[in-house]
Amino acid sequence: MIKENLHAQSDPLILMYLFSTLSLMLHRLRPELRPDVLSQGQSIKFARFLDLLFIHFNKIRDGNWYASQINTTYKTLNQICKLATNLTAKQLIDSYTIIEIKRCLVVSSITSQQVAYDFGFEDASNFVKYFKKQVGLTPSQFQKKYLKPVL
């Protein structure tokens, strides 16, 4: 992905497909295939959490909501996530959300305001603060840095 991004004729669509491929591979290699890390029950809960995250990341970033959907507590969900990935549930939610936001910003010339709406932010300024806290750049700065002009 880095080589493609640095290539003189880099194509955001190729980057999107590379990311999607890696994401699918990661999904296939989930910890439920590694019984030494998580118990079977933990693996099932983690897999259900990931399934829900992949569906609802663009509207729901509340770890308590995900925990309630898989009939567990937020504390238990955090423990499972930490065992599986060394990240908390909230860190996983934010990381996946930011990756998808970045993909949207790079693949299209969509405005920050539209991305904010698409990802369930009530206010564009809250979206900009969230993105800048996670990435260190505003969405428009990130987009300018990585979006290649179409010739």
Rank of each mutant, 00 (worst) to 15 (best):
K102A: 06
T21P: 00
R30F: 00
L92F: 06
F49I: 08
L6C: 06
A8S: 12
R30A: 10
F142Y: 15
L22S: 11
L18N: 07
R28S: 14
L151Q: 12
A67M: 03
D123A: 11
L92T: 08
D94T: 11
S108V: 06
V107P: 01
F142L: 03
S108C: 08
F131Q: 01
D51A: 14
A8I: 12
P35E: 10
N71Q: 13
M16V: 11
F119Y: 15
C81P: 03
D94E: 09
K59L: 04
V135W: 02
C104H: 14
L151V: 13
K45S: 09
S140W: 00
N5R: 15
I110W: 02
V135N: 02
I110C: 03
S125K: 13
L147E: 07
L147S: 12
F57V: 11
I98D: 05
T72P: 03
F142S: 02
F49Q: 02
F19H: 11
F57Q: 04
G136R: 04
L87S: 11
P139V: 06
R48I: 06
W65L: 01
I2R: 13
D94R: 04
F54Y: 14
S10F: 08
R61A: 14
F54H: 12
K75R: 13
M1I: 06
A116E: 03
C104N: 15
E4L: 10
Y146Q: 04
L24T: 00
T72G: 03
I93V: 09
N78M: 05
F49N: 02
S23G: 00
I101T: 06
R30I: 08
L53G: 04
M25Y: 06
L33R: 13
V37Y: 03
F131R: 01
Y146T: 01
V128A: 09
W65Q: 03
K75H: 11
T72K: 01
I14F: 05
Q40Y: 09
G120H: 04
N71A: 11
S68G: 05
L77R: 01
L29A: 10
Q79D: 15
K132M: 09
K45T: 14
S125A: 13
T73L: 06
N78H: 04
V106I: 15
T88N: 05
K82M: 15
A8P: 08
Y66L: 09
F121W: 05
A8G: 07
L92W: 04
T97F: 09
T97G: 07
F54A: 08
Q113F: 00
F19A: 09
V106A: 05
V106M: 10
V135L: 06
Y66S: 06
